[in-house]
Design a protein around this nucleic acid. Structure first.
Lengths: 324, 324
DNA sequence: TTGAAAGCGCTAACAT
DNA sequence: ATGTTAGCGCTTTCAA
């Protein structure tokens, strides 16, 4: 490995001068700078960031703890975060919890040891409530739980997203709606919008399986009287619900309307295209990482509080007026 | 920050002894070990990996350069790699190239500076051919280009995947097939299987857009005589092709068969379910990272050569006998 | 079995 | 504008 000392010798200066050149100190004479720079080029010198980190205390690295990567919801956030970090010359350390709070705690600890400059945590409800204090600023995003938490949070207004979906159905005249649910907050919002409509909630577990939506919708649609609309708390579940309707020979949206939440890309290309409420995932990631970075650069904890991002109804083909 | 010295003082030993305890050296007396351990617990000491890295030269970190994360193809690989690394107590540094070779080169350089222990590169054809030698072992995966490369490669037998799709169509009696293509190797395999059948190739650029498959299939299906089968080099394109067929009032598979490549989860749940050739993405990731880790632990470059992973035909509803 | 000394490659503070 | 000294927190000798 070629070190600063090698470069210094080659350029006939001390390593401190080399350091000054590398860090763009302004007072290096042009002549010296040129000598150093050519020595660097000749030797193919690349500064050792580990050593720099030890000396400065900053690793230019942030950790991102995510529940999973297979879900595009998180993958997109990771991509966005990675891009922003890249712009700012930070590095991204990824740790996946697989929805397991013990793993999350372990990662937090190991990130402490690596002295990352900050950590972003995408929550899925499994964040351990009694996390020991860590020595770096942290920000949480995507949190849906009602419970307060000792961390600044940037998330989506999930309740309001449900509300938008519910209001849409209400406006279309639906008075009997089935809900395929794995998220109480979203359901609460939808319910709020629906007022005193007749509501049938089918609980399903945490799932990214379309078939789960199918099964749940099957149950809802075979009830008498049959609901005129189905609200699913995620698009994947909603897509499964459309499958179920088709299977039962019901037309969407003539016989039954289906509304989802999230706006995954498949929802757009699906036939019929899914009416849904779009989650601003990338924007959420951006806000969260910016908050974190600001805290890192200022050397202070990020401002506590919750930022709620607005969602938008995407009125597409899978919803229509309630049948008479 | 609490250091080894703090622990040492508290336990009434030297920091060397603390180090011995932490690293599980066997010759520490039980009494001393107990003292040290309780000091560690009391002070909440977490060893500083940056300092350790500087001293040992190993960071217990591997970098993974991916073209993108939004594509589930890569996201799944990242997840798999992350899991294996986690098991082995390594950390994962993610860098995304956005299909840009300059960015790839930049990342490689910056990973050098961070002295990662190794780097895994998922190629998408944009890997710069004249990469400067780096100071860590590297392995490449998912490479599809024909060009030789100075790196060990673990990838999928894309040509054979195309062949399997083509053979399937040939066996079903298809003699006129349209190809929606963005991958020459896959097309070559399919063509090989199809022998002297009449083939119409519609080239589309690198794309994850379903509408691109739709447009291309539209073009292929409006030719006279109309092909009886469509082969698309990715599932997303194939799904778009099915959309196009539906739009033209053609039944799948009675009027036209559609076959894709990859086996994304949507292919299974789609109606009709897509016949495709499954790419063993996770297995590929696993093989690649294991190869890399072995090289890292042995302190030698990974064995050069190409590992080709086998693919499997998933015979589903979107393909059937050629119409008479 | 434990302790003391040196050094990993860099930056910070000071001296020149 | 450049050189000198010290030290970041750990591991690796080597000595006791």
């Amino acid at each position: 490995m070629v070190t600063m000392l090698d470069v210094a010798r080659r350029a006939g200066v001390t390593k401190q001068t080399v350091s000054n050149v590398i860090n763009g100190r302004t007072w290096v004479s042009p002549k010296t700078r040129a000598k150093v720079e050519s020595a660097i080029a000749e030797l193919n010198f690349v500064p050792n960031l580990v050593a720099r980190s030890l000396a400065t205390g900053s690793t230019q690295t942030v950790g991102f703890i995510v529940p999973s990567l297979a879900a595009t919801f998180y993958a997109e956030m990771v991509e966005e975060v990675g891009d922003i970090l890249d712009e700012q010359n930070y590095h991204l350390l990824i740790a996946s919890t697989h929805h397991d709070s013990a793993r999350c705690a372990r990662h937090l600890l190991s990130l402490t040891g690596r002295s990352v400059d900050g950590v972003l945590i995408a929550d899925d409800g499994t964040y351990p409530d009694d996390q020991p204090a860590v020595n770096f600023p942290s920000v949480m995003c995507a949190r849906e739980s009602e419970a307060p938490i000792a961390l600044p949070v940037v998330t989506i207004d999930y309740e309001h997203a449900g509300f938008l979906a519910g209001r849409h159905l209400a406006e279309l005249g639906h008075r009997r709606v089935g809900m395929v649910s794995e998220h109480t907050r979203r359901v609460a919002g939808c319910r709020r919008a629906l007022g005193d409509a007749e509501i049938d909630v089918i609980e399903v577990g945490e799932s990214t399986e379309r078939s789960v939506g199918y099964d749940a919708a099957m149950a809802a649609l075979t009830r008498k009287p049959r609901p005129t609309a189905l609200f699913a708390t995620t698009d994947v579940l909603a897509l499964g619900a459309i499958d179920a309707a088709a299977r039962l020979g019901l037309r969407v949206p003539e016989d039954v309307s289906v509304v989802g939440l999230d706006d995954i890309s498949e929802s757009r290309s699906h036939h019929p295209a899914l009416t849904t409420v779009a989650f601003p995932k990338r924007e959420m990631a951006r806000e969260a990482i910016k908050l974190l970075l600001r805290a890192v650069e200022n050397g202070e904890p990020p401002p506590d509080g919750v930022t709620l991002l607005r969602t938008r109804l995407m009125d597409r083909a899978s919803s229509g007026p309630a049948p008479a």
